[in-house]
Simulated assay, not measured.
Amino acid sequence: MGNLCGKPSSDAFSSPGRRLDSAPPPGKPSSASVPQSVSAAKTSKAPPKVGGPPRTLGGGGDPSSSQDDARRKAAEAAEARLQQSKKGGKLQAQLDKDKAKTRVDTLKDASEIERRHRDADSNAEILRNS
């Protein structure tokens, strides 16, 4: 099958080959090249200096005061979460109720659930047989 819309390309195996340990023939430019803008930037100036103490975004003043402020806010948020968790909610109330049950109460509840399952199974069997 041929290429309908393009130009015929040269065959990759039409040129003479070379050994793997030899260098490529001179005069052929490699396909990977450095763009002009990057190469010009490297030769024109020295790279910009980067350094100094780390700063948070938006911080305009002393870095240590902003760190202290961030620590204080994090501590306040942790305290608020702790107070919220102590209050609990609906699930916490159910958990406390379940923890307060004795072993006998737990066994009675399990027995009642099992009795209900047996009753439902027997009712379903009666309906199937009728």
Score class of each variant (00 low, 15 high):
Arg72Leu: 12
Ser33Pro: 03
Lys45Gln: 08
Gly51Pro: 11
Asp11Gln: 06
Ala93Thr: 09
Ser22Val: 02
Asn129Gln: 08
Lys99Asp: 10
Ala40Arg: 03
Gly52Phe: 02
Lys7Ser: 13
Gly58Asn: 07
Ala40Thr: 03
Cys5Ser: 09
Arg72Ile: 06
Asn129Ala: 07
Pro24Lys: 08
Lys73Ala: 14
Ser22Trp: 02
Ser33Trp: 10
Asp121Phe: 13
Ala93Ser: 10
Lys7Leu: 13
Asp11Phe: 05
Asp96His: 13
Lys7Gly: 09
Asp96Glu: 15
Arg55Trp: 02
Ser44Tyr: 00
Pro54Gln: 05
Pro35Gly: 04
Ala120Asn: 07
Pro35Leu: 06
Glu112Phe: 02
Gly89Pro: 03
Arg115Gly: 09
Ser85Gly: 05
Asp98Tyr: 06
Asp68Thr: 12
Ala12His: 10
Asp68Leu: 10
Leu57Thr: 06
Asp109Ser: 10
Lys45Met: 07
Ser14Phe: 09
Ser111Lys: 09
Gly58Gln: 05
Ser64Pro: 00
Asp109Arg: 09
Phe13Arg: 14
Lys97Ile: 11
Pro26Glu: 14
Leu57Val: 04
Lys49Ile: 08
Gln84Cys: 07
Cys5Trp: 05
Thr102His: 06
Leu82Pro: 00
Ser22Lys: 11
Pro35Cys: 04
Leu127Ser: 05
Asn129His: 04
Ala100His: 02
Gln83Ala: 10
Pro63Asn: 07
Leu82Phe: 04
Pro25Lys: 02
Pro47Glu: 06
Leu107Asp: 14
Met1Gln: 00
Lys49Gly: 08
Ser14Thr: 12
Asp96Asn: 15
Arg18Asp: 01
Pro26Thr: 13
Lys97Gly: 14
Gly2Glu: 04
Asp105Lys: 07
Asp105Ser: 04
Val50Pro: 07
Asn123Gln: 13
Lys7Ala: 14
Asp69Glu: 14
Gln83Tyr: 03
Pro47Ser: 04
Gly17Ser: 11
Gly27Ile: 02
Val50His: 10
Glu79Ser: 03
Arg118Leu: 15
Gln36Phe: 06
Pro53Gln: 00
Pro35Phe: 02
Gln36Asp: 11
Leu107Ser: 13
Asp96Pro: 12
Asn129Asp: 04
Pro47Lys: 06
Pro25Cys: 01
Pro47Arg: 05
Val50Thr: 12
Lys87Gln: 08
Ser122His: 05
Leu91Gln: 14
Gln36Gly: 08
Thr43Ile: 03
Asp121Gln: 15
Arg103Ser: 06
Arg81Leu: 02
Leu82Val: 07
Ala75Ile: 01
His117Leu: 06
Gly52Cys: 04
Ser64Thr: 01
Lys49Gln: 11
Ala120Ser: 11
Ser37Asn: 06
Lys101Glu: 12
Val34Trp: 09
Ala124Thr: 07
Ser15Leu: 04
Ser14Asp: 14
Asp69Ser: 12
Arg118Asp: 15
Pro54Gly: 05
Gly88Ile: 15
Gly89Arg: 08
Phe13Leu: 15
Ser66Asn: 00
Pro26Gly: 13
Glu125Met: 11
Lys108Arg: 14
Ala124Asn: 12
Arg115His: 09
Arg71Lys: 08
Met1Thr: 01
Pro16Tyr: 06
